[in-house]
Design a protein around this nucleic acid. Structure first.
Lengths: 128, 128
DNA sequence: TCAGATAGGGATAAATTTTTCCCCTATTGT
DNA sequence: ACAATAGGGGAAAAATTTATCCCTATCTGA
């Protein structure tokens, strides 16, 4: 595993959020687990842009941070299910707020993001 | 400037949020600008753990994404002020929600974060 | 005259995150 | 025998993000 060289600072609330939610796929993982997609393979199908490997890594972090639990069923082929902890569930309204904001502003967001991509990264080709 | 090699995908709302808010200091920048700390030097004093350089870079991205505006006063020494756009202001309640969650759960968060740091990165020495 | 404040940027290095590639477990079905 | 499925994980490469270092400019105050 990678060994951090710079210790994070945990002064304010936003620092703490950073530690637990800063990871490209974490919010989506929490969201989909909440929606009932509990098995690793399901989650991977829901998030095809991430590799199996990263999802495992980020799920492990979520587990270490006590936002999800991992239950292994001793069957063959193996079966694993993730669930939100009570603590993890308290995040759902927060994630909803984020998602709602994005949905409400989807058009504008998409437009400014694409504009920046086109100028800053000219080889980007997206939807018009 | 760094040239992206992998094009981001912008399928769902959470992808869009990632593009505009994924940056170590962006949420704090928006927060402090909203609180009235508008000048670059003020922002740097509020966020001493970030270097001037990164703040400039992230502020530029926020500007490109039309969350903030940058006003230059033609005086010497130079004076610059950032403000939230109307679009940027709509993010404030969202950031509040995040901050409130973190404040409410500060103790627990701190505890699980430190626990993980201690086991995963044994050379970490933090508060007990 | 020199230090400090103000704002900014290029080049490069370091840190961190994510991807790629390959390998392992065991059972079931062909 | 062999592939498929379900779940993993290590090592190394690639991508990306942050940090470091050094340089620009002008004015004010000691």
């Amino acid at each position: 595993m990678y060994e951090r060289k710079i210790v994070p600072n945990l002064n304010c609330g936003l620092d703490l959020i950073g530690e637990v939610l800063y990871g490209k796929w974490k919010i989506r993982l929490l969201w989909f687990i909440n929606e009932g997609h509990k098995r690793p393979s399901e989650l991977q199908r829901k998030i095809p842009d991430a590799t199996r490997r990263v999802l495992n890594i980020q799920l492990k972090e979520l587990e270490d941070h006590e936002l999800v639990t991992r239950k292994i069923y001793p069957v063959v082929p193996p079966k694993v299910e993730y669930s939100l902890t009570e603590f993890g569930k308290t995040l759902i309204p927060v994630i909803s707020t984020l998602g709602n904001w994005a949905d409400t502003n989807e058009e504008h967001l998409r437009s400014v993001i694409l504009k920046r991509l086109r100028t800053a990264h000219p080889d980007f080709v997206g939807q018009p």
